[in-house]
Design a protein around this nucleic acid. Structure first.
Lengths: 242, 242
DNA sequence: CAGTGGTCTAGACCACCAT
DNA sequence: TGGTGGTCTAGACCACTGC
């Protein structure tokens, strides 16, 4: 019995998609959890299975959920090996894998105008700044500096990061419930400052790839600003254009 | 004792997708043309409309076809304004738009080992090399060098390019029937060589963003190798991570 | 107005996974 | 074996476009 649909601004599958995102943002299902089956969700939202399926298609394409045939639909976690390099596009020319992390510092300060604007904070709101190096084959190749609103990452210290073996995004997810969903990056070539040169073991003025990233959690909320300096002598930033 | 599982053939919608790509590669529909309606295609392939629709969903997501509600489904063309910057991710910090093109040279030579490998040619097969500059606000910001197999671009000369007002990819499409579908890029920061420095009006050694692109036409056939040097002082390469 | 893609429903069967 | 997502079908109605 096809019910006559009332006029609505967004299609039903889009409304359902947004409801699921809202539920994820509210923590109804955490990373690693299975979502209810598509049939159960169809019941919950009063839609047909095909419509819920369409919503899940969109969410799977955005990597907001992950399907496993026969098992169910799950909330992806940055702890999974597959997610390891989802936001780090720097690959070795010879396809070597993996980095080792070296924490340089973690301190609390007031948001600069730039950080405040990017993260949607009031100026001089408390912010946590993290600096670190990534090494490949014993050589530093990435110098990362990143800023987080303290109110979302209360208790983040050098200690906490040192104890955590995985990626930062995996830590943010398990410890602070902040799951990164997508990011925007601006790339430039810049000359190494004396400080960056020393840390990356290159000469001052050496060309470095500057990667400025704004990362978003559910609902397009910006939660991290990051500035990376990549030494691209035997590594490159890989991109795919469609 | 488990019975040997026969290899499952690709799903019907995937087979249909490939048949449509093959028809596009064969030139059955040219850029700007409308494809047959989904109902007509369903008839042609002996599938239900929903299955054909699924195939078109995939093709639309890859930008291999473009849907216009109420009008039909079309082959996109690089001549359309929307496609103008599909493969050029360099944007001005102040969002200014547009470039002016300056052709530096176009000559015929034999494929280097690197070009041959990238384009799948025999070494020393004839290749066309194009060099040009892109200017923004009267200032050079991109130095492009690109290589094409001559057998796919016979008759491409400086004259032909000078007469054509649009982008290179629009020219390739209308004049040579080669439509670019996707590309892979490798980015690095490099120091300007004396020659590049002079052309881009910067000091030798200045950091430049090196963008090496391999562009593909239908069926993942590589047809263009390109090396761009971007001056990223008041422009940046924009990327989106999902 | 006719024709197109866009949405939504309903249900059958298959492939895969855990138990 | 039961439950899950994956495929495929069939058809209704809506929204938009162009004549």
């Amino acid at each position: 019995m096809p019910p006559s649909k009332p006029r609505s601004p967004a299609p039903l599958y889009e409304q359902i998609r947004q409801l699921i995102v809202a539920a994820l943002a509210a923590g109804e299902w955490r990373p690693g959890d299975a979502l209810p089956s598509e049939a159960a969700l169809a019941q919950r939202f009063g839609a047909s299975p095909g419509t819920v399926r369409r919503a899940m298609d969109e969410l799977a394409a955005e990597h907001i959920v992950e399907r496993r045939q026969g098992s169910g639909t799950f909330v992806p976690t940055h702890a999974a090996p597959r997610q390891q390099f989802r936001f780090l596009r720097l690959v070795a020319d010879d396809e070597a894998e993996g980095f080792t992390r070296e924490l340089l510092g973690c301190r609390r300060l007031r948001a600069s105008a730039e950080v405040a604007r990017a993260l949607g904070l009031r100026t001089s709101e408390p912010v946590i700044e993290v600096r670190r190096l990534l090494h490949r084959r014993g050589r530093p190749v990435v110098l990362d500096e990143l800023w987080l609103a303290e109110r979302h990452f209360e208790g983040l210290t050098a200690e906490v990061m040192a104890r955590h073996p995985g990626t930062l995004y995996a830590l943010f997810e398990t410890r602070f419930g902040v799951h990164m969903v997508r990011a925007e990056e601006k790339l430039r070539a810049v000359a190494a400052t004396p400080e960056a040169a020393q840390l990356l073991q290159v000469s001052p003025g050496e060309p470095l790839l500057s990667v400025e990233r704004l990362a978003f959690t559910y609902g397009d909320r910006p939660v991290e600003l990051r500035r990376g300096l990549y030494y691209t002598s035997s590594d490159h930033y890989r991109n795919e254009l469609n």
